[in-house]
């Protein structure tokens, strides 16, 4: 009565362990193709050949955004950085709402002549931090968070900002 159950239990557990191991190995092996975008550092080290489409992801470098309005569609020039390397990008078209300096971004396109990445499409990548605008202002005014140096501090350390934020 008990033996077949125990046998089935071990059989199922062994099968699961094998499957889990196989999946982990497969995912580790295909890791590069599962990555949605390349960082500027990866592009600087070994840029994909001219004209080959890939995705470039990083932060829009402060002070690099320049827009020219030629005809109907605006052309924007900016640099995407990951803190160590920066890649200049050119994009003609309407940018998403969240696009601004210091914001995460993923550009789809290919390297063009002169080391400029010519984007066909630009997607905005936002952080995982959610807070009301008055709390954001209070955090920045009190010097607890400077957006240039990374994400805001952990939510449970915001206690003191609550009263202040509510007042602004």
């Amino acid at each position: 009565m008990r033996a077949p159950r125990t046998r089935r239990l071990y059989l199922v557990l062994v099968c699961l362990a094998c499957l889990g191991g196989a999946t982990a190995l497969a995912l580790a092996g295909f890791s590069s193709s599962l990555t949605y975008f390349l960082s500027p550092r990866q592009v600087a080290a070994k840029a994909p050949p001219l004209g080959q489409t890939f995705r470039l992801g990083g932060i829009v470098q402060e002070g690099t955004v320049k827009t020219q309005l030629s005809g109907q569609t605006p052309t924007t020039l900016f640099a995407v950085t990951d803190g160590r390397a920066a890649v200049p990008v050119r994009f003609s078209g309407v940018l998403p709402d969240l696009f601004r300096e210091g914001q995460g971004v993923v550009a789809i396109g290919a390297m063009g002549p002169g080391g400029v990445f010519v984007a066909d499409e630009v997607l905005a990548k936002h952080g995982a931090d959610y807070m009301p605008r008055d709390v954001e202002q209070a955090l920045k005014e009190s010097g607890k968070w400077d957006p240039r140096f990374g994400p805001p501090p952990a939510a449970d350390s915001w206690g003191g900002e609550k009263a202040k934020g509510a007042g602004t």
Binding site: T76, V94, L95, P96, D97, L98, F99, R100
Partner: peptide, 8 residues
């Protein structure tokens, strides 16, 4: 230059 689209 970003152009707002209606989110609602």
């Amino acid at each position: 230059m970003s152009q707002s689209i209606a989110v609602w």
